[in-house]
């Protein structure tokens, strides 16, 4: 352990200020924080809450039902980030659909799904576009590429989400935010400055052990004064202006829409959908999809977990009916989900 890591550790373990609730918004942060054991270093008066930043976790049940419909009723090949495959829908997950003969393929990038469409002109390829500001540009790039090349067998099923209105919905749930570094790499830090002006504190954090440790130290050091603060602890990646080319592309291809978040309900203008010019790449329009409303399992408290209203272990099915092998809710599926992390890392 080098000196700086030790210094950061000392700041954290010796913190004796007012009680603090810190929310890590990003699922990758949740995952890494558990992996490096950062929670174990926190003093008793500092609580770390996992926020709604795992795209798999906030994706509503109905989205899985829509994907299963495309796969089973329309015979589409579903391409997706791997984590979504085991998320339960109303009747089945995509893994369940696969067992019924649906074609479901994990991909690394939406651009790989485009390539699959090029190589297989007789197959209808649908990419499940989930994710936040970090991931949305890659989906837009896929739609833009498909349009440019006139690919007729590629489309997106969108459930992309944006953070700003989610922060508003989360108001009061934490004293400081650990902002999602890779979202800010795209959007820049303007939103963080605005939140600071409204009295909301936070730091932009990176993802390695030393980055997370220092970000936590910066929060605790700044919290002592009681004044709202914002620090960019990830300037090697996050610039104030973000990534203008990505912002421009997203503005060209997609537009804001109301969006349903698992457990949080519909948050106005918190989602992104393809613009009308890209209608032929919108799977809902292309396949004239009927309105599909999912029915989540009523015993599951993923919604409360995502808002920091309860700990995963407060949920009745946690660790009993709901485990990573047999998940009831999405938060138990993804490695980034709070329930999965609590379960895997043996938190009570």
């Amino acid at each position: 352990m080098n000196e700086k890591i030790k210094a950061a550790r000392d700041i954290i373990t010796n913190y004796s200020g007012r009680p603090l609730r810190i929310m890590e918004v990003c699922g990758t942060h949740t995952h890494e924080i558990f992996k490096i054991g950062l929670r174990k270093l926190l003093p008793e008066n500092v609580e770390l809450i996992s926020g709604p930043g795992c795209p798999v976790c906030v994706t509503p049940v109905g989205f899985i039902d829509e994907a299963c419909w495309l796969a089973l009723e329309k015979g589409c090949v579903i391409t997706t980030f791997g984590d979504l495959i085991r998320v339960p829908g109303t009747e089945m997950s995509l893994a369940g659909a696969r067992a019924k003969g649906a074609q479901v393929r994990p991909v690394y990038s939406p651009m790989d799904a485009v390539e699959m469409a090029r190589q297989n002109p007789d197959e209808q390829i649908v990419f499940l576009a989930v994710g936040f500001e970090t991931t949305t540009p890659s989906a837009c790039l896929a739609a833009e590429t498909a349009k440019k090349e006139g690919l007729e067998n590629f489309s997106l099923l969108t459930a992309n989400k944006t953070m700003p209105n989610a922060y508003a919905a989360l108001e009061g749930s934490a004293d400081a935010f650990l902002y999602p570094g890779h979202v800010n790499a795209i959007t820049g830090t303007g939103i963080c400055e605005e939140l600071k002006a409204k009295g909301v504190s936070g730091v932009v954090a990176g993802f390695t052990a030393s980055e997370l440790l220092t970000a936590m130290a910066v929060i605790l050091k700044n919290a002592e004064s009681g004044e709202p603060f914002f620090v960019n602890c990830y300037p090697r990646v996050v610039k104030a202006e973000g990534n203008p080319a990505a912002q421009k592309l997203v503005a060209k291809v997609m537009e804001p829409c109301d969006s349903e978040w698992r457990g949080l309900g519909v948050i106005p203008m918190s989602g992104m959908k393809l613009k009308d010019e890209y209608a032929e790449y919108d799977a809902r329009k292309k396949y004239a999809m009927p309105k599909i409303t999912g029915k989540p399992n009523p015993a599951c408290r993923c919604g409360d977990v995502l808002q920091g209203k309860c700990k995963p272990s407060d949920c009745k099915v946690f660790g009993r009916g709901c485990t990573p092998e047999h998940p009831v809710g999405a938060c138990m599926v993804s490695d980034e989900g709070a329930c999965s992390a609590y379960y895997q890392y043996g938190m009570e």
């Binding site: 558990f34 980030f81 495959i85 994990p106 895997q344």
Partner: peptide
């Protein structure tokens, strides 16, 4: 019955239990 990992920041954490199908986590 547990496997505990001493991490690079000097904390201890559980090694997650073995899971099912290996699926890449990207987003």
């Amino acid at each position: 019955g547990r496997v505990v990992m001493e991490t690079e920041i000097g904390a201890q954490t559980l090694l997650p239990q073995p899971g099912g199908e290996l699926l890449p986590r990207i987003c």
